[in-house]
Nucleic acid binder design. Sequence first.
DNA 1: CATCATCATGTAAGCGCTTACAAGCCGTTT
DNA 2: AAACGGCTTGTAAGCGCTTACATGATGATG
Lengths: 333, 333
Amino acid sequence: MNIYDIAEKSGVSIATVSRVLNDSDKVSEKTKEKVMKVMAEEDYTPNVFARGLSGESTHTVGVLVPDISDNYMARAVALIERRLHEKDYNMLLSCSGFRAEEKEEHIRMLLEERIDAMILVGSTYAGSDTKSHNTGYIEKAAQKKPLFLINGDVDAENIFCTFSNDYAVSLDLTKKLIENGRNRILFLTDSESYSAKKKKAGYEKALEEAGIAPIPSLICHIRNNIDETVSYLEENHPDFDACFATDDAMAVGVLKYAMKHGVSVPKDLSIIGYNNSELALATTPELTSVDNKLEKICDDTVIRLFSVLSGNGFVPRRTSVACTVVQRGTTNH
Amino acid sequence: MNIYDIAEKSGVSIATVSRVLNDSDKVSEKTKEKVMKVMAEEDYTPNVFARGLSGESTHTVGVLVPDISDNYMARAVALIERRLHEKDYNMLLSCSGFRAEEKEEHIRMLLEERIDAMILVGSTYAGSDTKSHNTGYIEKAAQKKPLFLINGDVDAENIFCTFSNDYAVSLDLTKKLIENGRNRILFLTDSESYSAKKKKAGYEKALEEAGIAPIPSLICHIRNNIDETVSYLEENHPDFDACFATDDAMAVGVLKYAMKHGVSVPKDLSIIGYNNSELALATTPELTSVDNKLEKICDDTVIRLFSVLSGNGFVPRRTSVACTVVQRGTTNH
DNA sequence: CATCATCATGTAAGCGCTTACAAGCCGTTT
DNA sequence: AAACGGCTTGTAAGCGCTTACATGATGATG
């Protein structure tokens, strides 16, 4: 069942059928209805490859995440998929791991598939201001298709970024911990991502403003995993009275460690997690966590994606979304 | 940069280039090398649409999950993606929700995209033996492309199933609970999935064998969510001395409820979860859970998928994978 | 040396669509 | 009534690839 069959059965040419398919305004209402009726009867669906070949949109967006089994990213993917599906778009999902070379390879592979645009989630990509990461391949990819970064920030043509105000939130939270008398604040992070860097910068700034010298042994890069966090603490036994972790799993690890050693939370130890995942509700006491408004971030991204694809109007390249803090049982302020 | 350019630069015809691309054996080693060199130099990648149009494989597999933000399914998707990527296949991901009509629509949309095969995760699809579900549209879809069900079981041409031995595990676990003196065992489930049904059947069989009459108020269909489980229990206050939940989130909810009301776990209450997710490690005590060997299930599925696509050899239509029980602090046997 | 099988390579059709351009139709205008 | 302009519709080329079939080269065989 192809466009020729439809054309024949409706008594028009294939060009007219194609115009109906693409909702062109150059078709009379009468013919349009007639053709649509036949298409419905025959349960006809256009062949994407033929469409793709002749230069049309592919109705497919590539999405790249480091690890889909991470709850944060899975939620992002779910939200993105929902929005794309609403617009009859498909999602090509690729999971790259965290290494830059792998990402590059996955991006290349996605681009081969002739997608309309690409979304990179949880990026380590940051722009010229940080200078810390090679973003060359990102910019190159953006020359082919519009690129959307979720929690990344690269200032270049055809790259659109949406990110949280992690620096401000982290600064504020750390300040509050200090105001509450904490001065040995453990900072736990699992990645070199743009978000993680901003969180760390906020943490350090707060210490600086309070005149507290940062203690290297309290700034730890570990894996984002309950058990490995516990093992790390068991091995190193850092001396701390508060903890700020860049993901809930690590914060839960800290809580487990504290309970095991009879440390009273939140009386003698405050714990703050990040991403407000279901883990935060599993523990007793429940975990105070930062809600990064993932839904809003994803929505903003997809909305702008469709604006770019439809080509109408100016689309802002950088958007910031404000997080909120969800107070629960592991902090007392 | 297309096949004509490559042909010209290597001084051969496009047919020869195509043969090299497809690794046909009808090309001399010398020409092959020459062409491959040019392709590498020019960074050439074939156009998927053109390939698709001329009837070739699309190198894309459609994957349908009800909800990617569910940890179990996210892990499945991650595992599947990894294996597909290894073989240079892409994954078209669609999230359908749990309603049959929606699933049908997503399946239709995926098929439009001319995928090579399709994987349905966490299915409510079960075959003629259960008779409970309309699997007609699944069977219809399977006429177009080979279908792979993860934890589903439909006995039809072109449908390949991989599932856990949920019945046996559930039977065994419930028996053990009974042997340990429990006789008011709460059964919590969130879905009408094939897996959930088998778990329930095992649970009921164990009661029957022990001569315990099933108590309707102890068999609950709720949402798979910590907080909603707690709310449910607060409202209904069932009288139980053990709990078997079809997912860890519900089991954690039970544990929270127990702790809140000062019930001693596992002394006065045994709790068993399912899927062995990270949640099981977040609580104190840690949650006893069933490891359903998702990795093996996914690997088995993808391996058979490639066997079917390559068309060589007999491929078994149904495969069962054995679960294991991970004993932790919420049970004491 | 003519004949033929074998293997490597080339030619051309066709996959189903979009779209520039051509053509036809019909009501207005001069 | 002829000429024109504005719509709608049709024709045909082309997107980049695969593959059946044709062709040419090479070497073996009678």
